[in-house]
Simulated scan of single mutants.
Amino acid sequence: MRWPYRALSAAFGIADAVVPKAWLPSTQPDALIEAAGANPAPAAREGLRHLITAIDADSKLTFFGKVSLRWDMIRLLRNAQHVEDAQRDPAIASAPVQAPIFVLGLPRSGTTFLHSLLAEDRDNQVPRNWQMIYPGKRPDDFNPQTDRRARAVDKQLKLFAGLAPGFAGMHPITADSPQECSEITAHVFQSLRFDTTFRVPTYLRWVEAHGHHEAFAFHKRFLQYLQAGVPARWVLKCPDHTFSLDAILAVYPDARFVVVHRDPIAVLGSVAHLTEVLRRPFLSNIDPAEIGAQVGARWIEGANLLLAFDRRPDVEPVRKIHVHYEELTGSPLTVIERIYNQFSLKLRAQAVAAISEKIAARPRGGYGNHAPYSLESFKLSPQALQTQFAPYVSQYCR
């Protein structure tokens, strides 16, 4: 951690000790809604209430966590209100979102790398990091170096990376990098994203019981807003799609799927470590063993859901393709050609050139080589995991 961030981190630590919570602006739902000037739908209000209740009960927020929570909630409420208001424009509300491509699979399996390559094709649209802060259409001549919104978000990302040592190496992103769908569904407070940065087991149980249909109905409206009335071919990525496939298919019955696979034993240590890194700026109650148990249980369930997804009669074989991590990182352009052939899409010369340049500039997505992350430090047993993941590994990782 460089000295400015060490100083800032130290300042936040002092604030933790000396600033009473009563001195900070309220993070209660009604106060957040009033501050945002928003009028969220009942389901979004319910999600916000469950989230704040869970954070109050289950998370011990740092000073940074307390301050950023209010900023984040107000941002989400305001953005969602802009999206909902835009539905009054028939050109936006009626614009189709046809046959979107969803990339899913185990986390840390190359889905981000694939998403970033597919984003190089001008015929594809992907949600960008800056669009989660400042929703709006991305112009064809967009330049993140000169756009004030992208520059502001790049500063925010650098600040967070400084406060979360290890994050930039594990997940290198910029303002204009593709962003995950969990950031979109967070706008209506029905997202698994919150369970990554906070400790909110009661909220997670509520989301699982409530389902994701309202979240993905909003997801479509958000894409319509980004399209600004002009239909686009969307490529959307998030490992959490694995847990919301029923909702995705209800909202997007013509959706197509790219499922990326990797040996779970090779990724779970990394997933647990990234969760710990992401939580550190926000929480003071971090238990590696608890994170390990959470990550292990979540992705054992996820692996079984991927097996079940492959047997669904309502998703024909022509609408899905399986890709392995080693294949993707070893010959990415070949994998992309297979995906385009599977979905009968034309891979234009511009796209091939741009994707090839991206691969040359950032092999393997820009992730450095490092020793495998320890499972044992998160109290995960490799032997037990091998048994629990055996059906998935047998199907996809041999």
Rank of each mutant, 00 (worst) to 15 (best):
E214N: 14
D240C: 09
C397D: 05
A38W: 04
I355T: 08
D147F: 02
N39W: 00
K220C: 05
R6S: 12
R205D: 15
D121H: 09
W130M: 00
M73Q: 15
R348Q: 13
G211I: 14
Q28H: 12
A150R: 03
G13P: 07
M73H: 12
K358F: 07
Q81E: 06
R122N: 11
R70K: 13
R78A: 05
S59G: 09
A10L: 11
R348D: 15
L192C: 12
A17K: 08
I92L: 05
P363L: 10
R279K: 15
P20Y: 01
T334K: 11
A175H: 02
T174Y: 01
F243K: 12
L226P: 04
Y325I: 04
A217T: 11
A10R: 09
R128G: 01
R88V: 02
F160M: 10
G211L: 14
H261Y: 00
W299C: 03
N124R: 10
R221T: 03
A150W: 07
V207Q: 12
V295N: 09
L385R: 00
G368Q: 02
D121P: 08
T387L: 13
G110C: 02
T196I: 13
L385Q: 03
T197G: 11
A351Y: 04
S116A: 15
A7I: 12
A22V: 07
T202R: 13
A164I: 09
T197H: 14
K60Q: 15
L385V: 01
R149H: 13
A354T: 08
Q227P: 06
M73A: 15
S244L: 06
D58S: 08
M73K: 12
L347M: 15
H322F: 11
A250V: 06
A43G: 11
P40R: 05
F64A: 14
K220P: 02
L106Q: 00
R199S: 10
A168E: 08
I265A: 13
R122W: 04
I336P: 09
S109C: 03
V230W: 00
L69T: 14
V200Q: 02
L345V: 01
D240L: 09
L104C: 06
R348G: 10
A91T: 07
L8H: 02
A247V: 07
Q98H: 11
V352I: 15
I265F: 04
Q156R: 12
A360T: 09
G296T: 14
S191A: 15
E34S: 13
W130I: 03
I336S: 03
G368E: 08
D195M: 12
D195I: 12
P253Y: 05
T27L: 00
F216A: 07
R148I: 12
Q28L: 09
G169K: 01
Q227C: 12
P25L: 10
L192A: 13
G105V: 02
A54S: 15
A161H: 10
A44Y: 02
